[in-house]
Write a protein that binds this DNA or RNA. Structure first.
Lengths: 144, 144
DNA sequence: CAGTATCCGTGTTGATACTG
DNA sequence: CAGTATCAACACGGATACTG
């Protein structure tokens, strides 16, 4: 069962608020929140919308799980209409909207600072490489 | 090797900025950033500080890995003094401080909204339970 | 369409032992 | 003290098949 699967995962030894933080910042949680910030979505619609972003798409299982978790936390509202074929709309609760805005803000910050991060990475990798090489063949650079 | 291990993990199919977001919001990344926001820490000192928070502690390996990732991203500064016994101080870069403040803000929000979240969870679980029970023994409630 | 149930590969984690 | 290396366990995520 999906629910007990998630709950088992949640039963980790984290302070309760860290749990919510993990839900919100989880791989698909971020995408779902940011997506729903724009407008409500149906299940498959949301799935497609997320898959566009880049990277590999979210599986039905993961989307379901993510949505259930966020719904349980009171961040996402699930509106299931009893029609055939089934139609379920997902939207943000007021609480969810607050969270989503924070997340989007953080994502935005990250996005804006990517250049600096990339630069830092290059510098780091350069140092590492130089350091490793110096250790592999010390006789070349240390031949006094 | 720890580095290639991390890089393999990072080679996932995510947009680049999502990667940084994951680093920053990762289980230990959050704790490290928030911890260092207070003041610089030495390695084991930071480890102990994090372990206090609750939950199970971070292993040396995970702390190392987290710190290296954040250092590579240019968020954490590592100051290794060539003395015996070794002494290494970790602190936030200006970039890291910005990130840490955002993260702390999000963590704070989460913390402040826990009551609402818990309440939503109770409501959710109640509905689920009632629903499941109704399905298990429909003859009791539907005996016309 | 909107899920649920199940199996299974793999990445992440953590315990342990070792090094400088 | 501050790591690194290796291995084993396990949770997570994904593919598939099935239901209402």
């Amino acid at each position: 069962m999906a629910v007990s699967e998630r709950q088992a995962a949640d039963a980790e030894s984290l302070c309760p608020y860290r749990l919510v933080l993990e839900h919100v910042t989880s791989r698909w949680g971020v995408l779902v929140l940011v997506g729903l910030l724009e407008r409500p979505y149906r299940f498959s619609e949301l799935r497609r919308a997320i898959n566009v972003v880049g990277g590999r798409g979210v599986s039905e299982k993961m989307l379901t799980q993510t949505l259930q978790t966020l719904e349980r936390d009171g961040l996402v509202h699930r509106d299931a209409k009893p029609v055939i074929p089934p139609r379920v709309d997902y939207s943000l609760t007021p609480l969810g909207r607050e969270a989503a805005e924070q997340v989007r803000s953080l994502a935005q910050w990250t996005h804006d600072r990517m250049a600096q991060v990339e630069q830092a990475r290059h510098a780091y990798d350069e140092n590492r490489r130089a350091y490793d090489e110096a250790r592999e063949s010390p006789q070349r650079s240390r031949a006094s």
